[in-house]
Amino acid sequence: MTTTAVRTPVPTARGPVSSALLDVLTGPEDTPAAAYETLASAVARAVESTEDVLADEDVQLSLFLLYLLHYGPAEFVTGEREWDPELLRIRAVLEERFERELRDRVPVPDPLPQDGAELVDAMFTMTGGEEKPTLATWLARHPSEEILREFLIHRSIYTLREADPHSWGIARLRGRAKAALVEIQSDEYGGGRPERVHATIFAQSMRGVGLDDTLDHYLDLVPAPTLASMNVMSLFGLHRRLRGAIAGHLAAFEMTSSIPNKYYGRAFRKLGYGEDVTWYYDEHVEADAVHEQIAARDLAGALAQDEPALLPDILFGAAACLYVDGLMGEHMLECWREERSSLRPAEAAL
């Protein structure tokens, strides 16, 4: 069973920046100078006035859309926009604000580890707090059709492109770290078997609970924390300068994955779903127990040893992963505990 590809609709703007950006992206291919000017001044105002850039719906959607030009398909976009210098300049203004906020808020171990081996220990300590995963254990105790569908909708933004943001990092690493990243990504992409590509297995889970597995189908429904989670990965992955951070991000992601996925699988099984839906979670219990070791030791550890100058950013990337994904999880849990939807209200019915 496959879902027929449908053109993704134009996303709904969430404020002046995304509104001006969508005007450019969906407007005439030969963008009028005035449209860029409107966008640039909206961006300048937004980075000045935003109270919390990680929770800013307008900024996070705009960053997401600008990154989307590199991933695709973004069928609503007219013309060739990926390397539009005006859009890249605007993205840089948003990114500067985003990265500054992350560096201000994300806690990094102090004092810093001194070498690769110490970094590996620090990574296991940092990720140790996630061993009793609140969101996952809560879901396993209180699964409902509606909540699990919402959960998959949040996750779909990244997981239908699972591993892609970290793949940007491959070309930017060398030696042991590159080999380790490729070894992990190869597994993420099915090890040569298309039916085992993790994003494809996830799409099957979505269809299994009656959701649409078209990329970004639910974009309008997901709030800023969910977009921020994806945007952090794109920020780190698309800048060579931040290659330490993308490596650290993947390591932290893999190191906090096996145990939660066991609970997620349990939640779906509790509602009577079969292997077509739970395969994704069962697969990740096993795969990420492997990836955790490779990512911590051969990717992050070896990178810190081979490029010591990247050590602080490896930790920053790891901590940013835990922090931002923590915000996303907290948002879901808070809403569900209060028995309300964690999604944005939209006309589109689920």
């Binding site: 061993e131 096996s258 145990i259 066991k262 219990v285 096993e286 127990a289 955790e292």
Partner: peptide, 13 residues
């Protein structure tokens, strides 16, 4: 591990 002989991360717990 619940999936022995493979690891499922339980050693951390």
């Amino acid at each position: 591990s619940s999936i022995a002989p493979f690891c499922d991360g339980s050693h951390k717990l």
